[in-house]
Write a protein that binds this DNA or RNA. Structure first.
Lengths: 146, 146
DNA sequence: GAAGATTGAGAGCTCAATCTTC
DNA sequence: GAAGATTGAGCTCTCAATCTTC
């Protein structure tokens, strides 16, 4: 067996991508029950961790994505009533995003749902296996960001 | 250290998702040079492996996605000149997708680019680490599909 | 002119509704 | 009516172009 290890990386990569998709879908199914998605929860979490309102550019930088994406994400978050926009007092070009009380509540509830879903996903792995997986993923990540 | 292992799964999950995104972007950067994306290459590969034309429903099943997605994917592949549609001779409801010569060429070139990118991504892992990673991902996948 | 944000176009995905053919 | 495929609406994301304010 294993004559094809030389070409296996592609299969392993595809398995990784497919599993990540499935894991994401699993968490989002849970989050969907409270009107959240992973991107929305990520934005709310960044806002919560910042402890204050952030400009959309700031938010984009902390979410490692492009500004136009944040514009649309905040549009939807605003429609949900989880976030509001305000003109920055010092610079009228800049828009500040801040969480509403409903957003704060959704963030906390969503965080618990996400953590619970993550524990379910990892429940077949021992603690040392989980640490090992994290280390291997880290090696992959180092290569991917080049 | 490690007092917070109990809540770590969420961080590990997020790292996994983020790394998968980065890995995907890495491969797609390479594929983009020949006008392909991972979803397009996946469809072409399914068609190649089938060795014949497939109905769009068949294609959707083999790609594990919804039929309406395949409709749009084939629209784009057809616009690229990589795939053509034809009415099924036996059932006029059904549309067959078949690869054009350009599609076949793109599939082969794309496969090589994808394999090479995958080898780069895994190049910091030993063979046994790669196998271990695949096994751990498998455990995760088993949980995610429930 | 450069830095903020937004808009427009388009890829990729889903679900619900529709249309055609069986 | 049920099985094919498609269309319409919406989410997430990107890049290029635009608009406003500095």
């Amino acid at each position: 067996m294993n004559q094809s290890r030389a070409t296996a990386p592609a299969a392993d990569l595809l398995a990784l991508l497919h599993t990540a998709d499935a894991a994401q879908a699993h968490v989002e199914t849970s989050l969907g029950r409270i009107g959240l998605s992973l991107p929305k929860l990520a934005a709310l979490t960044v806002l919560k961790d910042a402890g204050q309102s952030l400009s959309l550019g700031d938010l984009a930088a902390r979410l490692s994505c492009v500004k136009s994406n944040v514009t649309q994400l905040v549009d939807r978050l605003e429609a949900d009533g989880f976030v509001s926009r305000a003109v920055a007092p010092d610079d009228r070009r800049s828009r500040l995003a801040f969480m509403t009380p409903a957003g704060r509540a959704a963030c906390e509830k969503g965080g618990r749902l996400r953590d619970q879903a993550a524990r379910e996903l990892f429940s077949d792995l021992t603690e040392s296996e989980t640490r090992l997986l994290a280390a291997l993923i880290g090696k992959l990540a180092a290569r991917a960001r080049c």
